[in-house]
Amino acid sequence: MIYLQLLWSFLQIGLFSIGGGYAAMPLIQAQVVDHYGWLSMNEFIDLITIAEMTPGPIAVNSATFVGIRIAGFSGAVVATLGCIAPSLIIVSLLSYIYTKYRNLSTLQSVLGSLRPAVVALIASAGLSILLEVVFDGQAMVLDSVQWVGLCLFGAAFFILRRFKWNPILVMSLCGAAGLVLGLS
């Protein structure tokens, strides 16, 4: 049963995440956190952080991480299969159509309309992560603001926008700063 749920859940993630990488994030959150409650919001953000720091697509990383925690190694295999199955079928088909017709214009028009929606979805997922960092899952009032997190976010965002530092470096520095500030 749990295997079927994992498979079905990650099938949907694989099927509806178009545009790669961050596009999978809102879908993973919807399935894994909101729908099934396999991970808490905090664990989900840890997962995204880990996925950013390690090689490989976020969707495959998440499938392995969630699968193994829910149903061991076979769970990881099932979830990963689920998340790549739509690609295997659709991309193989497209590859065939492409070699036959070599025409991508309708596909690109559909993609053109999907892109703004995907950007909005990523923005929403990003904001919910920020709210979790700033309010730590508590009520959104001034008293519960986590100032360390808020300041680290502000500094990191500024450095990324202004100086275009490597994201992995920025995240590592935030981690180090969080450790030092948290201990003092």
């Binding site: 950007v119 990324l160 995240m171 700063a177 948290g182």
Partner: peptide, 24 residues
């Protein structure tokens, strides 16, 4: 120690994602 480090990194990951959102 790990929890504190991860907490700091979460602030970083929020910044990375919203930075990507701004560019996109």
């Amino acid at each position: 120690y790990v929890a504190l480090t991860l907490k700091g990194m979460q602030a970083g990951v929020a910044a990375v994602i919203l930075d990507v959102v701004c560019s996109l």
